[in-house]
Amino acid sequence: MSSVSAKVLEIKDLQVRFDTEDGVVKAVEDVNLDLFSGEMLGVVGETGCGKSVTLQSVLRLLPTPPTRITRGQILFHGENLLDVSEERMNEIRGGKIAMIFQEPMTSLNPVFTIGEQMRDVIEQHRRVGKRKANSIAIRALIEVGLEDAEVVLSKYPHELSGGQRQRVMIAMALSCQPEILIADEPTTALDVSIQAQILAIIKHLRQTHNMSVLLVTHNLGVVAQTCDRVAVMYAGYVVEKGEKFGVLKAPLHPYTRGLLESIPRSRKVRELRSIPGSVPNLIDPPEGCRFHPRCSFATEVCKREVPILEEAKPGHFVACHHWRRLGY
């Protein structure tokens, strides 16, 4: 990825809160992410780290209430999506920025055929007639590897397999020629062999259409094999980000390192390294660095002060008081 390419999306100082009966959930804190033209950025983290909330905020998909975006900007070519009208948002959503989700069955309407749903979306965003919309849909389905596109168009969602449904979702996203594709755990519900196909399709389309892709996943393997850069989130914060080779081969944050060491790979390993404890409750998160109760390197300063995300190496950022001590 050349550094001269343009920023298409900038998430700046994003802070998100949920009001619940038990208290205010501090879901996302000071998240800063940039997405460059043609780039694929992976956002990884475990349950409750705020990765999906961050990306759903981009398209304003979170219901308000209970959600409150309390601070920050989301700039799409410089236009703050948090300020624009709902009409403008409808143009962008699905048109300029498309999104696919984990479980395609819940994103497709079960009582309409694939063809009806695809044509609807295409007519709306590309302002074309039914016949033109149909041919665009067919082309998109063929591009995602559904060769018998006309048959697929006549089917209902339940008549397709999980992998086929996710292909339909991608084709639908693609048919509106988006600049950005946001993929929220697109392969988590699928078998590994189908996952490999879907990831290959996303990689392929991103090249042929010069799309930028924001991929949310809990799977470090998926990021390693598909993305250019990666941002690791923990308990609402971005704790490390940079080129994937830097972050995954020489991680600076103890959490990233712990995650990588937790992945079972071989029987020759006597005991897997694991991260003790579990993800904190974000209604009452730990003071200071939110990772400190689970971190074997934590000291007094970690309990008091939130570490800032600093540039440790060119393009490689880390939020840890002690990264110098732990560096490879």
Binding site: S193, Q197, G221, A224, F245, L248
Partner: peptide, 24 residues
């Protein structure tokens, strides 16, 4: 073997370049 090749490895230097799109 197909199952093994399908797993995305967390090491970015280990890649399996297979033409999955046309595999089936």
């Amino acid at each position: 073997r197909f199952l093994m090749e399908s797993i995305p490895d967390p090491d970015p230097e280990l890649t399996n370049e297979i033409d999955y799109v046309n595999k089936v």
